[in-house]
Amino acid sequence: MPIIESEGLRIEVNEEGFLAHPEEWTEEMAKVLAKAEEGLDELTPEHWAVVRFIRGYYAEKSLAPMVRKMCQATGFPLMKIYDLFPSGPAKGACKVAGLPKPDGCV
């Protein structure tokens, strides 16, 4: 599997750029993934709000939350999620939050 190396971290990801071992996720990794996969130089508090919610939801249900839940929890309108994560909720936000690739046509 490919390896992303940055900031002294060696992160193993799958071919789609999702973490190979979602349980090893740290906030430092999130920054590296955001830069490498989404081209985000910096994670703002708004980014973190989305990422922390996804992380918590995943820890509880082993499932990626629907975008509906992300918006409910953060109070952001739908378009805001796309502004924050250009690749969208699945390939953008969930990836930064260290989730495995969601199943299906995404």
Binding site: V67, L78, G88, A90, P102, C105
Partner: peptide, 11 residues
């Protein structure tokens, strides 16, 4: 519809 419209992109 396609489920991804519900799950990730209801626009």
């Amino acid at each position: 519809i396609n489920p991804r419209e519900i799950k990730f992109d209801p626009r």
